[in-house]
Amino acid sequence: MVEQIYTVSFSAMGSRCEVRLAAADAAVARHLAMRAIEEVRRIEHKYSRYRNDSVVARINAAAGLRRVRCDQETAALLAYADTLHASSEQRFDITSGVLRKAWDFRLAVLPRPEVLAGLLPLVGWHRVEFDDESVFLPQQGMELDFGGFGKEYAVDRAAEMLTIMGVTQGYVNLGGDMRFIGPRPDGAAWEIGIQDPRDMSATVAGIPMERGALATSGDYERFIELDGRRYCHVLNPRSGMPVSYWRSVSVVAPLAITAGSCTTTAMLLERDGLDFLERADVRYLAIDYEGRIFRRT
């Protein structure tokens, strides 16, 4: 008997999310999905910058004062952040989240130059001291922010939970960052539309997915427009200003954390982003500031 597809929707990490899977009935589907959702919640609570009791809050509160002990999971994420920093010409920097204090994308106002100038000295992953047991931010006011890959990490962990429980068909979707466990019950691929970054009611392409991950970064997610220019939420850690070369970058990779890191790195590298994606040997679809589409299938 071919199982039916069930969708369990929820909200997490500021995004609309869903677990979609094949199961014998709705009760079984919800039971399986809830285990995956619990894992997403665990990661959100542990690493959210908005919670005073999170690991990130504890590390940030100790900036300039003392080292903070880390468990194995946190140490692994710090090591991954270090790898991203090195492979992105130091553009992917998880200390750059402090720049959000200058930018409010709910208001069409640019930050004052003196505000940015005061925050830029707090950006610099190369200054962070860490090992397998602890981490230290050397200057008060410095912050870590795992937002650059935390959602994608949660996608992977949720998908792995479902796999452990025997799910073989379905996917996890956290705000557009997706990890696929297997095809539809009839063996067909899931057809995923890629958002047109200038027309929210349209797509520019469809990507068939059976397994692996798909992630997209774009200048249409959070932005303001002033005098005909768009300022998006992806910020260059050196200048504190938004990047502007790519409208969107979508990447297919084995893991969501890899796909998401590649999209963000390509956005940050701007004109050199395409060369980075080629070196990373991933499938991609990228749309530049003129609307030209580049893809590798």
Rank of each mutant, 00 (worst) to 15 (best):
V40Q: 04
G124C: 08
A286Q: 12
I94A: 01
V19E: 07
I194T: 09
G260E: 15
I192K: 05
A158H: 10
S248W: 03
V98H: 06
G148D: 11
S88N: 11
A266T: 00
S248M: 13
G170V: 13
G175R: 07
Y171S: 03
E221L: 09
G14N: 13
M267N: 07
V123L: 04
I207D: 03
T83I: 12
A79H: 13
L99V: 09
V19K: 04
N60I: 12
L174M: 06
Q90I: 00
H85K: 06
D199M: 09
C17T: 04
R49I: 08
L110A: 00
R66L: 02
I293F: 06
V243M: 11
A205G: 03
F146N: 11
A23N: 06
D82H: 15
I207R: 07
R41L: 08
A81D: 11
D196H: 15
A33G: 05
Y80K: 14
D71T: 04
S217Q: 04
R296P: 08
A158E: 08
R66T: 05
D186F: 11
A256C: 14
R179Y: 04
R127V: 00
L144M: 12
E114G: 08
L77G: 00
T163L: 14
F146L: 13
T265K: 09
T265P: 07
E143N: 10
V167P: 08
P208C: 14
W246M: 01
L162W: 08
Y171C: 09
